[in-house]
Amino acid sequence: MEELLTLLGDGHARTIEHLAMELDTSIEDVERKIEFLEHAGRIRRVVFCRGGCNGCSGCSTKGSDGVMCKGCMPENGFQNMGVMWEVCKA
């Protein structure tokens, strides 16, 4: 698993498929390692703020519950963007 983290040290982004190819292993293996590293706090899932975030007070038509206006950030927009993980800095 250390080799996975070492690979990421070069600053390039990789898809799970690319990682599997570079580490000469299966996609399932990469997936379980990602899951482990996430639980171990070595990598972090990037969570994007989208509709429903609080603190969107700049929006002119903001609802009372702090939900971003639909015109700005549609409810069903940006759902199929995949998942990103970044390495936690030591």
């Binding site: 990421l8 040290g9 600053g11 982004a13 990789r14 898809t15 498929e17 995949g82 998942v83 390495v87």
Partner: peptide
């Protein structure tokens, strides 16, 4: 120092036209 990222890309699929 820049750290690389891992991305899980969604598989290509036909659009769900209704949605």
């Amino acid at each position: 120092e820049r750290y690389g990222m891992i991305m899980e890309l969604p598989p290509y699929h036909k659009p769900r036209w209704r949605a």
